[in-house]
Amino acid sequence: MKSLVTLILGGNRGDRKILLDSAVDALASKYELVNKSSVYETEAWGGVAKGLFLNQIIQIKTDQAPLNFLAFIQQVEMSLGRVRDEFWGDRTMDIDILFWDDLIIDSPTLKIPHPYMKARKFVLEPLNELSPDFIHPVLGKTINVLLQECKDKSKVRRIKK
Results as ranks from 00 to 15, higher is better:
150 C>E: 05
80 L>K: 06
57 I>M: 06
18 I>L: 11
109 T>R: 11
109 T>V: 02
156 V>Y: 10
10 G>E: 04
47 G>E: 10
11 G>P: 10
106 D>W: 01
9 L>F: 06
122 F>V: 04
53 F>C: 07
114 H>Q: 08
70 L>E: 01
148 Q>D: 09
35 N>W: 01
153 K>V: 11
144 N>T: 05
75 Q>H: 05
41 E>S: 14
37 S>V: 02
34 V>F: 04
157 R>M: 15
59 Q>K: 12
98 L>E: 06
80 L>I: 08
50 K>L: 12
127 L>D: 02
60 I>S: 03
15 D>K: 11
91 R>T: 06
44 A>W: 06
75 Q>Y: 04
93 M>V: 12
116 Y>N: 15
143 I>A: 05
137 P>D: 07
70 L>F: 02
25 D>V: 03
127 L>G: 01
146 L>V: 14
158 R>D: 04
132 P>N: 12
72 F>W: 01
66 P>V: 00
77 E>G: 06
116 Y>R: 15
66 P>K: 08
147 L>Q: 13
36 K>R: 15
11 G>E: 13
127 L>S: 00
13 R>P: 00
116 Y>I: 02
18 I>D: 11
99 F>Y: 15
133 D>W: 01
154 S>G: 11
136 H>R: 13
74 Q>N: 12
109 T>P: 00
45 W>D: 11
140 G>Y: 05
90 D>V: 11
104 I>A: 10
107 S>V: 04
150 C>G: 08
30 K>N: 07
114 H>I: 09
54 L>D: 03
12 N>V: 12
130 L>Y: 03
146 L>M: 15
95 I>A: 08
71 A>P: 00
84 R>D: 07
34 V>H: 00
22 S>I: 02
60 I>Y: 03
23 A>K: 05
152 D>A: 13
95 I>G: 09
32 E>D: 13
133 D>G: 03
121 K>D: 03
144 N>L: 04
109 T>E: 15
158 R>W: 10
151 K>F: 07
111 K>I: 15
141 K>S: 07
123 V>P: 09
25 D>P: 00
119 A>V: 08
102 D>G: 05
42 T>V: 13
156 V>T: 12
93 M>H: 01
111 K>V: 15
94 D>M: 08
110 L>A: 06
154 S>I: 11
97 I>H: 04
29 S>T: 05
141 K>H: 08
66 P>M: 05
55 N>H: 10
26 A>Y: 06
6 T>I: 11
61 K>G: 00
44 A>I: 10
71 A>E: 14
106 D>G: 01
67 L>H: 14
38 S>T: 10
92 T>W: 07
75 Q>S: 14
113 P>T: 07
84 R>K: 13
146 L>K: 09
157 R>W: 07
153 K>F: 02
156 V>D: 09
27 L>E: 04
2 K>D: 14
126 P>A: 12
37 S>P: 03
